[in-house]
Structures are given as structure tokens and as C-alpha cells.
Simulated scan of single mutants.
Amino acid sequence: MVIRTFDKAPSTGPLMLKAVLPAIPVIGGLPGVRHAKGSVPDIVLERTGVRTDHAHLETYNEVCGFPRSDVLPATYPHMAAFGLHMSLMTDTAFPFAPMGLVHLRNTITQHRPIGVDETFDVSVRAADLRPFPKGSLVDIVTTVSIAGELVWEEITTLFSRHTGGGAETSPAPLAGVEAPDGVVHWKLGGDLGRRYGAVSGDRNPIHLYPLTAKAFGFPSNIAHGMWTLARSLSAIQNRLPAAFTVDAEFRKPILLPGTVVFGSRVVEDDLVFGVKGAKKPVTHLVGRVVPQA
């Protein structure tokens, strides 16, 4: 195992450029650019002593709809980990070129709230490369600890489309779960991807402008999946327990600008939520919050 330690968040600008290179014909096949195949790298990326920038948190809350609080939103530690995610995915030992990946699912477990002034450590690794219809799935596993105590963890599941593939070896966390109907409409501006990209560091071209998104096969730029999840959790913030697991599945991209509808309902002890199109009943996101003891 190789452990790489960072004393600050990696700059995502150069990493985004590095992520694009493998998608360029000829250049993508060159040594030092071409990604290896066959397994996940035995690499762990770490940041220690991470402190929250209050101004950055304020901007994040504004973009995602969270109220001010003395604890972090459940999705916010993803911000501290994103640069490590990019460093891992752009490493040529990672089995897939980053620009071809689709963020399919996300699972976050908050074991306890993290105070805005607490210092924490972040660790990131890849795991569980497995078959999926028309391609493969791979997980990026993130953990956050405070003084050795695991307080937050995340599984980011990515889909790589390629020939071959096969049936998934285990059931999807939200198999059979459908997004509830809702009445709350969110009108999303065409600049949403740029606004969230500025605060998250995720400036993937598919989120920024119609022209850059069309270059990757989308009719317009699309909202970030992690924004949609964050905005959904902000809508039910006052109903979230202190400790919980939230599973989310991103089923269809949200084209910008546009209007979507948010809904939620209680199913036994769980809280199921979802985001659908306002004009067409297509499901963009479905999620479920399960309380933890």
C-alpha cells in the first residue's frame, strides 16, 4: 500500500486539465496519460488537520440552501475530499479515464455531526471494481475522523461505460425505491453548474456551459449530482437525526436551466425523497435517509 499525504487540498484546476487529456485522441494513448486496466490502485490519499474555512462554508450554504449552523451540513465534508478524489482518479494507476465516468450513486454515513470549528482528518481510496451492465462500477471510499474517531464516511460509486460488463454482483442500495411525488418547485438557472463548480472545485465541462456540455454529448450543461443531493438534504434538514445514512441514486441528469420538483415521505422509520422533472415525470434523483443508533 502506498500512502500519499497532502498538507493542503490539491488544486483542482490542473487536475481537471489532467483529467481531460486521456479523452483526447492520440494523446490519451501516450505513456504517462493512458490509464492502466484491470484493478484499483493500492493507494491511500490523506489530509490531516483540516479546518473549515467559514467564508467558504457560507458560500456553500448559500448555493445549496443550507441554513447557518454550528455543525457542518452532511454533504460538506465531500468538499474537503474532492481534491483527493481528483488526485486519485487522474493517477494513471486508476483503471478508468475520469472524463468518461458517471457518478451513479452516493452513500454518506454521518456517525455524529461535525462542529464547524473542529479539526478533522480525511482519507480517500478506491475499492470494489465490479461488473455492471454495459461496463463497470468502482467506488471511491472517503473517511473523516477526529482524534481517531470515525465521524463521517462516504462511498462514491462511479460507472464506466465500455464493452463487456455483466450483471451487478450485489443489489443496488435503492433497487425498487421510487422518488415520491412532491409540490416544491425549484427553478434552476443556467449558471447553477458554474456557481456550484466555483465552490466545490468540480469544474467538469459538462456542468459549465451548453457549448462545453455538447462536446461530451449533452444537449445542455447539467447540474452536479452532489448539488442535487445537498439541496435535497437542505430541504429536509430539520427532519434529519444526528446520526444517519443517506443513500442516493442519480438516475437522469438535470438539464440547465430548468425546473424540478422535490418530494419526500416517511416509509416506516426511513425518510425517502426525490427530485423529478416539472414538465415530464422523469426521476433525476432518489434518496433514502436511514437513522443510525
Score class of each variant (00 low, 15 high):
V40N: 08
T119V: 15
I254P: 09
V289G: 07
V124S: 07
V260T: 04
G182N: 05
G83L: 01
H85L: 08
I43S: 05
P219C: 01
C64G: 03
L45P: 12
V50W: 14
R194D: 07
G176S: 13
F216N: 03
R239W: 04
L101C: 07
G197R: 13
G65Y: 02
G83S: 03
F273T: 03
H54P: 07
A127L: 06
G258R: 11
G13P: 04
N204C: 01
L271S: 02
G176L: 15
V184C: 03
E153F: 06
P210M: 07
G263L: 14
A230W: 06
D53I: 05
N106G: 09
A36D: 12
F82G: 00
V267W: 02
N238V: 02
D117H: 03
P241E: 12
A230D: 09
H224C: 12
R51E: 15
R105E: 14
P133K: 15
K279C: 00
I206P: 12
Q110T: 08
L84S: 11
H111T: 02
D247P: 00
A19I: 14
P210I: 09
E178T: 14
V151Q: 08
L229Q: 04
D269Y: 01
P173V: 00
I140Q: 08
P180H: 07
F244L: 13
F273M: 10
P25H: 13
E178W: 05
E58A: 15
D121G: 11
T12H: 02
E58I: 06
M99N: 05
V272W: 14
V289E: 08
V71F: 08
D70G: 07
L101I: 07
L174Q: 03
K276E: 02
P25Q: 14
L188G: 04
A147S: 15
R47Q: 15
S232E: 05
A235P: 05
A213N: 13
V282T: 12
V282F: 06
L17Q: 08
Y60T: 06
L255R: 13
A9N: 04
P281G: 04
V266M: 11
G28A: 05
A230Q: 09
H103E: 06
P205Q: 06
L88E: 04
G197N: 10
V141W: 02
L240A: 12
E154L: 08
L45Y: 14
V151F: 10
G32W: 12
P25E: 11
L101E: 05
V102S: 01
P210A: 08
Y76S: 00
N221K: 03
D202Q: 14
